[in-house]
Nucleic acid binder design. Structure first.
Lengths: 195, 195
DNA sequence: CACATAAGTGAACAACTGTACACATGACAC
DNA sequence: GTGTCATGTGTACAGTTGTTCACTTATGTG
């Protein structure tokens, strides 16, 4: 699995990776692959599971560091960017998988995002934010937030990992996106949703 | 180029498509490929160019049909969904390319999206909407809108092309996303952007 | 018509692919 | 120790890949 991630980190697309390539990178003979996975798709699914752990770690750190609401967005975006840098290959894999070849991997990543969004909704409820929103509207808002952040991933991953200026730009832009969404949510009225 | 799109439409990922595969689908001998393209990447770049035309057609239709502002969002989303259905393979290619293997294709698609966003900003100016926003803030807003719609693409393309109920769901959700962004933009103040 | 250029062909190559099988090695319970 | 697994190895095979070259065939212009 690390070998596959390394290949992805080197710029290869997961959909174009083969068994022999992965085992070569892992320093192991091709046949060994079958001891652990039934196919490359299977490998992908297990990577999605591990990606879930990475996302949960990120969430935990965000919860620990974002206590008061005023700098919520900036801090969260900062933590996100930091994790995306630290686990570059994992997030690359995630970005690729969203429009990837394997339907199962695609669905897995989508489901991780749904989970993330629902956790975010819980956190906002816990912080007594957006209390005027119905549950459905809050879920919708969090979905939009997660999507926006996920899209920033493609920005982040397309620039080189040590271009601090550009990274700062992405962070600033993402922060503004989220601020705008929050303002929209703040002024949202139930009636607008159901005409 | 059609052959490549057909393969993408059948579920293959562009990054995993080879010369022989493309020519086989085109009903032509492998060597013929080199008469038209230097490499698969080159093919991808030409597909991006054609994608640009598809997007422009969509834009033109939206401009022709969306005259008054009140139903602007619903109608635009409807047109978008219709075009995404009609040019499924093209939009699949677009979604794949955003996190694809070829840096050049990636940048090409990103640039098409930037162009689209700037055209959208012009249209909003022309319609005298969001006049309280600075140029930079309007651009930012349009960027966010285009991203949101682009992400809906992955939803749309992951469900089967004739599941009208789900398509309707995606359309409704996307519409709400955009409504929320518009509300946010409507209440946006310059000072929030630059602290 | 003739001629130039674009598009397609067929055979050939070495390199690589996924997968199968029988066999070797390591770790660990008894 | 012996036996049992999980893991890794080596060899083999048929199929596929990208690219080359010299060739034929279409197409359209003068």
């Amino acid at each position: 699995m690390s070998a596959a991630l390394e290949l992805v980190g080197k710029g290869r697309h997961f959909a174009s990776i083969g068994i022999r390539e992965v085992t070569r990178q892992a320093g192991v003979v091709p046949t060994s692959f079958y001891r652990h996975f039934r196919s490359v798709d299977d490998l992908g699914l297990q990577l999605v599971d591990e990606l879930g752990l990475v996302l949960r770690r990120m969430m935990r750190e965000a919860r620990a560091n974002v206590l008061q609401a005023d700098k919520l967005i900036e801090e969260s975006v900062g933590i996100f960017v930091a994790h995306a840098q630290a686990n570059r290959s994992f997030f690359l894999f995630m970005a690729q998988g969203l429009a990837g070849e394997s339907r199962a991997v695609q669905e897995g990543i989508r489901s991780e995002m749904r989970f993330f969004a629902s956790e975010l909704a819980n956190d906002l409820r816990r912080l007594r934010l957006m209390e005027h929103l119905s549950d459905a509207d809050l879920d919708m808002t969090c979905d939009l937030i997660v999507r926006t952040v996920a899209f920033s991933l493609t920005d982040l991953l397309s620039i080189s990992a040590d271009d601090d200026y550009q990274i700062g730009q992405v962070r600033k832009r993402t922060t503004r996106f989220l601020q705008m969404i929050f303002i929209g949510a703040g002024h949202w009225q139930r009636s607008q949703a159901e005409p």
